[in-house]
Design a protein around this nucleic acid. Structure first.
Lengths: 198, 198
DNA sequence: TTTTTTGTTGATTGACGAGTCAATAAACTT
DNA sequence: AAGTTTATTGACTCGTCAATCAACAAAAAA
């Protein structure tokens, strides 16, 4: 019963299944069969649509980054002030869609993949660049010359919070993580203004 | 030519080789043969001393944590003030021995391993607990009620800096990373005192 | 000096898994 | 209607690798 136009549907299912399986098992040692099974098809079909397992991984990475990017863009669209821009990024970073177990677990594994696969490394680099530049737009008016360092630090903190989330027991607490990022920011901005005034 | 008393020597060589190989390849997909070869012996011998590959991984984790712990303890021993205690931890965290490529790459992979292997998870938990409690001793006199949150944040930042180091091109720059941690701290302490005074 | 313990490895087993292939079938084209 | 493209899978190939085994050597113990 070959319905035509299956390709995008199947690819999409595979991408989601890839994220789910990596997140679930907490490892890149997932078999194509596992992924295909979760996506409701044979492993041969998975290989038919994606040439290789690596391609599936890369597509899954792109998917996660796409969701993240879209959410950030959306929030940024309605931000009026520099502070609101940063807040938007923080909130998006720890939103339910992005900070869910699966995605975070997968994200960590993609980071590992980036050590091996140049293509994956490039994707992570894109993410880092985008994050930093987004933060800088908001930070420069608020922190001037310090914006650079603060953005770098906040980026590392966000990644660190993701990293730790992976091993935290219980449900993800995006609100707490976001608060931590906010505190970081508040402390740095307070310190900066203190420096300017005194 | 069986010299006696080889066991500790072999085990040590295997542990170091494990870290090197994981760090070098950036993945847990290293074969026992690879590790054994680097350690200068047959894979059968590696299996003889460690029952399984997993045991080698766990021993390697313990080794990394031991080095880290020793360095922190050493630095802490000579720290006189709360501030010096924190500084000691920061410096140790980004010391040449701990912040070297291999070790950082291995550390990331161990984090992934912790998602799968309970024993590994426990080791990471030990590390996190120890780091936090060490930080708190120094932090409490300086930040009072905020010490808890600051310690948590600083821990996450340190882990995040490790995470990012993995993908940074060029030689590790422990000094820059340490400075970032110091900035975090300075900003938070400044904010805290500001809050107290005003 | 026999026996046991420790060190050591080449060869083998057994499992698993990525990727390919051949075959089947339903649509679409001409 | 014949030919082509798209969808789909079971079976298979081929390689890899953790773990085990059988065997050998040398030191230590009995």
């Amino acid at each position: 019963m070959p319905k035509l136009g299956m390709e995008p549907i199947r690819k999409d299912a595979l991408v989601k299944a890839t994220i789910t399986e990596i997140g679930r098992t907490g490892s890149l040692d997932v078999t194509v069969s596992q992924i295909a099974k979760r996506a409701g098809m044979s492993s041969a079909l998975a290989h038919h649509y994606f040439g290789s397992k690596e391609d599936m991984f890369l597509a899954a990475m792109r998917h996660i980054m796409t969701i993240y990017g879209a959410e950030v863009r959306g929030a940024l669209g309605v931000a009026q002030t520099p502070m609101a821009r940063i807040e938007a990024i923080v909130v998006a970073s720890f939103s339910a869609a992005n900070f869910r177990r699966e995605a975070v677990g997968a994200w960590l594994n993609f980071w590992v993949l980036a050590q091996t696969v140049p293509q994956a490394k490039r994707l992570v680099a894109v993410y880092q660049r985008r994050l930093k530049s987004n933060l800088l737009v908001g930070l420069r008016p608020l922190a001037g010359a310090r914006a650079e360092a603060i953005a770098e630090g906040l980026g590392a903190l966000i990644d660190g919070l993701y990293l730790r989330e992976v091993l935290r027991p219980g449900a993800p607490d995006g609100a707490a993580a976001a608060q931590m990022a906010r505190d970081y920011l508040a402390a740095h901005l307070a310190a900066t203004s203190l420096d300017i005034n005194g």
